[in-house]
């Protein structure tokens, strides 16, 4: 991960910053410059909104052979999460017993180290999710 590439995405990765169309109100994550529905009409009318970080699991998998950068965390859980504002995203589910991960389970975002560019490069922080205990 290059430093500029990491830096550019900080608002989205740290704070789940999304966009809302000023025309139709649709929320997109990551933010878009143009609404998919309103297209050019929405240019210049896209507002920035933060997602709450709450959502639920649409589907998931426990990876036993994952991306090389995540190998020390194997097996680790990856899930598609539907946020309460609507947009879906892909993220790790951490700090849980794997048996407790279920479709429909409620989750909330946490701030974690996602990746690092070796021991001398940039550390990339961002969102992961944990199960919400009822």
């Amino acid at each position: 991960m290059s430093a500029p590439g990491y830096w550019r995405e900080i608002p989205q990765r740290y704070n789940l910053l999304a966009s809302r169309c000023g025309v139709c109100g649709d929320v997109d994550f990551p933010p878009r410059v143009m609404c998919q529905k309103c297209r050019r009409e929405s240019i210049g009318r896209m507002e920035r909104v933060g997602l709450s970080g709450r959502g639920n699991i649409v589907t998931y998998s426990i990876l036993h052979t994952g991306m090389p950068a995540f190998s020390d965390q194997k097996p680790y859980v990856i899930a598609i999460i539907e946020t309460e504002e609507g947009p879906r995203l892909t993220a790790q589910i951490v700090d849980c017993r794997h048996d407790d991960v279920k479709i429909g389970a409620n989750v909330k975002s946490v701030f974690r180290k996602v990746n690092e560019d070796g021991k001398e490069g940039i550390i990339s922080y961002g969102y992961k999710f944990t199960l919400v205990k009822e």
Partner: peptide
């Protein structure tokens, strides 16, 4: 999607496994 899937740890087996699970 490198920025929004791969960055967060998803690889192809993982993505297709999520389709399978669903």
């Amino acid at each position: 999607d490198q920025e929004w899937e791969g960055f967060f740890g998803a690889n192809f087996p993982g993505l297709y496994a999520m389709m399978a699970r669903r």
